[in-house]
């Protein structure tokens, strides 16, 4: 399957967030909260770093 970089990154962040939340938490609400928080941080940090590096791109 041919996915763009953004879609691949989003899929990776989603899967890892869900996995860590499912394994790391016991209560359903805690899992959902952890997954959402982890996914949001993944995306924010990745896009933030991308924008920081943008001036260095050719």
């Amino acid at each position: 399957m041919r996915l763009s970089h953004l879609v691949s990154m989003t899929l990776f962040a989603l899967l890892v967030s869900i996995a860590f939340a499912a394994i790391g938490q016991r209560a359903l609400t805690a899992r959902i909260r952890r997954a959402i928080w982890s996914f949001a941080l993944f995306m924010l940090i990745a896009i933030g770093i991308a924008w920081l590096l943008f001036p260095l791109s050719p």
Binding site: L3, F12, L15, V16, A19
Partner: peptide
């Protein structure tokens, strides 16, 4: 050569770490 391939590599490594 594709972004999906690179992220697929990371997913396989993440599976091992999990």
């Amino acid at each position: 050569s594709s972004a999906a391939g690179n992220y697929g590599t990371r997913l396989i490594a993440a599976a091992g770490i999990l």
